[in-house]
């Protein structure tokens, strides 16, 4: 009878070991969650187990990119011949009137937690230092293309209006009814820009005329088109009926660094 006893003792030891592992794991997750919250490593759409994956992805990528590396850039030879357009242009009368007048009356308003709220016309933006990049635009659906974008660096604009310390997100409102936001890490990133031209030509209507955002380290759907105005905020719960991005209402992740 001694042998079965020995084996049950072993089972108990294994059980204790498994229990200890599980407890350590649970405690580890708890500590990680607390730390993530303190250091701003939780995305604004984190809630419920469905979003644990998004939170882990956001936190780990923000840690990985602590030194703000640049997205890959390409040579002019690598620019794609095909650059598909997704979605329809805005159908509002305001947008049609602006487009008919070659966006003469269009302004980019920047408001919220800034020292000097401003509204820049298209001519203003064209006078600012030109920022240029040849980067990959990848749609979440799976297709991708390489193009050259030219415009004004978002950090340059943010410096002009003077961002206050409280600002945590930049919110973009678009003529097609879309709205969305990026955090200050992406807003201050040297490749983030308000693009006015693509492949040497003024941005086409399909690609978001007159100005679209370019966030090179995220999927294409975060590069908002048809920008109407921007707002700097400390809390995204106040915008868009509590949704930090229009796409979140359609079950798409707020953070799309993938």
């Amino acid at each position: 009878m001694s042998a079965p006893l020995a084996s049950s003792k072993l089972d108990r030891r294994k059980l204790i070991l498994a229990g200890a592992t599980a407890l350590t794991g649970a405690a580890g997750i708890g500590v990680a969650a607390t730390l993530a919250k303190r250091y701003g490593l939780t995305p604004p759409d984190h809630q419920g187990i469905y979003n644990i994956g998004e939170t882990l992805t956001y936190a780990s990528q923000r840690i990985l990119m602590a030194r703000h590396p640049l997205a890959r850039e390409f040579s002019a030879r690598e620019i794609s011949r095909v650059s598909p357009v997704k979605g329809k242009p805005p159908e509002t009368e305001t947008y049609h009137r602006l487009a008919d007048a070659s966006f003469k009356g269009w302004t980019l308003g920047i408001s919220g937690l800034v020292a000097r709220p401003a509204a820049f016309s298209l001519d203003d933006l064209k006078r600012f230092p030109v920022s240029s990049q040849i980067t990959l635009h990848a749609c979440e659906e799976g297709w991708s293309y390489i193009a050259q974008w030219q415009g004004v660096s978002l950090p340059y604009l943010l410096n002009r209006v003077g961002v206050t310390n409280k600002a945590r997100y930049v919110v973009f409102y678009c003529y097609d009814g879309w709205w969305g936001s990026i955090d200050m890490d992406d807003a201050w990133h040297p490749q983030t820009m308000m693009a006015l031209a693509m492949n040497g030509q003024d941005l086409s209507i399909g690609h978001g005329a007159p100005v679209r955002l370019r966030v090179a380290r995220q999927m294409g759907y975060k590069s908002y088109k048809y920008i109407a105005r921007m707002e700097l905020v400390d809390d995204l719960k106040k915008i868009g009926g509590g949704l930090p991005d229009f796409s979140v209402g359609r079950k798409y992740a707020w953070y799309a660094g993938i």
Binding site: I49, Y50, N51, I52, G53, E54, L56, T57, E140, S247, R250, K251, Y252, A253
Partner: peptide, 12 residues
């Protein structure tokens, strides 16, 4: 969108 959420949760 939801597919990718589940995909990443399961990947983690």
């Amino acid at each position: 969108g939801w597919g990718r959420s589940i995909h990443f949760l399961a990947a983690w």
